[in-house]
Design a protein around this nucleic acid. Structure first.
Length: 419
RNA sequence: GGAGGGGUAGUCAAGCGGUCCAAGACAACGGUUUGCUAAACCGUCGAGGGGUGCAUAGCUCCUCCGCGGGUUCGAAUCCCGCCCCCUCCGCCA
């Protein structure tokens, strides 16, 4: 959520920056409604001040036994007038709130302006693997080894739900535990949050109101299935004023993630690439505004640490303005290489949301003893998402003889060296 | 799911139609005193919004007592609906 004051003070400048993300964005209706809103507030407040003075006078008159009927008549008129203005306000304010809640965050100046394709690769780890034998797609590997069973998963739940079986399940659990412990060791507070959450929580994280169609909703209880632990961790300190020496705060959560993925899927996204349910270890930070971009860089490095420990080649890219998620000012993705498809896929998306979510959730901190509260900055990043990581391991670690080498770090947990 | 109790500022807590513009205590902060620490004393001390300011400074007005409605000239206080927490009962992994 942007500060409406920014729109008041510099409507053209803000409009320009928002259009760099999406040329369709138009803030003129908000500006118009906001002007009317301010006008009404001024009138209502003047009237209320008058009413308050009058009501106190009524109290005094009655106490001394005098007649207050003339004044009461006048106050009734004022009350009616206030009511009329407030009725209009109650119409306008939700509209402003809704329009504002749908506007994206302002992109950071360092973000390249442009379309999706214009992402910038800033570094990579390891060489792109080259095999001198025909590499298989992870689906094929999964079937051969009997560790992935999409057919039965479809029967139980539907298409695009994964089911890990046998060593596949062992490996997936090992990955989760390995990543969770990895970040906990790096100073992140481990969290296992509720996997369902209410609408307020998703409003704070910015999933609602605009992306309601992307998340599963349990109507009977009005709860939503978690699409990313970011949404949950963004609510850890809702309505709090944190003390400055509590910051920065780091959290790591493990959750399954559920996404409707409404729309069409490409053939290249078959298998574990785009599914309705996947496991993710999520990193989340609450920081002061002056440190948040340093913290973003650190966050990316910490997420990369997982892939380095597993020995998987990846590259790091900065997303351009038109590819940013609504709440993000700057996003840095980590992409792993899948030799079975000769393509890179995102396994981590690390974003600085600055005060966008903090404003929605009223998460603030007090810079000094007598100072006014300020909004914190929130950052999130996958550390990392499996399913895709599983696909990467299966495809990258295949050997000419058909075996799959399990990364050293996971071998003790899986109890095997090869699949 | 049923019965009862409760939600007031950072925490505790009073108030139950008009001097509430929310008492008081604790915590916090500033100061005085003081070999040091502590204590004592004095003072400051919630948030959001509007107006006026270069101001995140003053001044001023409005709003907020779990949330949303209603009654009233006037609501923390009365009425209705909802949410959350605690205790007990029921059900249950």
């Amino acid at each position: 959520m942007l500060d409406i004051k920014l729109l008041r003070e510099d409507p053209e400048g803000i409009a320009r920056r928002l259009k760099s993300r999406n040329p369709e964005i138009d803030i003129s209706e908000i500006i118009t409604l906001d002007r009317r809103r301010l006008e009404l507030i001024r009138q209502v407040e003047d009237l209320k001040a008058e009413r308050n003075r009058g009501s106190q006078a009524v109290g005094r008159l009655k106490k001394s036994g005098e007649d207050a009927s003339t004044l009461l008549k006048k106050l009734a008129d004022i009350a009616a007038q206030i009511d009329a203005y407030e009725t209009e306000l109650k119409e306008i304010e939700p509209r402003i709130d809704d329009l504002l809640a749908r506007l994206p965050n302002l992109p950071h100046p360092s973000v390249p302006v442009g379309r999706k394709e214009e992402k910038v690769v800033i570094r990579s780890f390891g060489g792109q693997p080259t095999a001198d034998f025909p590499v298989k797609h992870h689906l094929e590997i999964g079937e051969e080894k009997g560790i992935l069973d999409f057919r039965r998963a479809a029967m139980i739940a539907g298409a695009r739900f994964p089911m890990y079986v046998g060593m596949g399940a062992m490996l997936e659990m090992a990955l989760i535990q390995f990543m969770f412990a990895f970040h906990a060791k790096n100073g992140y507070t481990p969290v296992l949050p509720p996997f369902l959450a209410n609408a307020d929580s998703f409003y704070v994280s910015s999933q609602l109101p605009k992306f309601a169609n992307e998340i599963y909703h349990c109507e009977k209880d009005d709860l939503y299935l978690n699409p990313t632990a970011e949404s949950l961790l963004a609510n850890m300190h809702r309505d709090e004023i944190l003390s400055v020496d509590e910051l920065p705060k780091y959290y790591v959560a493990y959750t399954p993630c559920f996404r409707r993925e409404a729309g069409t899927y490409g053939e290249e996204e078959r298998g574990l690439i785009r599914v309705h349910q996947f496991n993710k270890v999520e990193l989340f930070k609450y920081t002061t505004p002056d440190t948040s971009y340093q913290e973003l860089d650190d966050l990316v490095h910490e997420a990369e640490g997982v892939l380095q420990a597993l020995g998987i080649h990846y590259r790091v890219v900065v997303l351009p303005t038109q590819d940013l998620a609504q709440q993000s000012s700057k996003t840095i993705d980590i992409e792993v290489y899948l030799p079975g498809q000769n393509r890179y896929y995102e396994v981590s998306s690390c974003s600085n949301c600055e005060e966008f979510q903090a404003r929605r959730g009223k998460v603030r901190y007090r810079p000094g003893p007598k100072e006014k509260p300020r909004y914190v900055h929130t950052l999130n990043g996958s550390g990392v998402a499996t399913s895709r990581l599983m696909a990467a391991i299966l495809e990258n670690n295949q050997l000419p003889d058909g075996r799959i080498r399990i990364p050293d770090a996971l071998q003790p947990m899986v109890g095997a060296e090869y699949l």
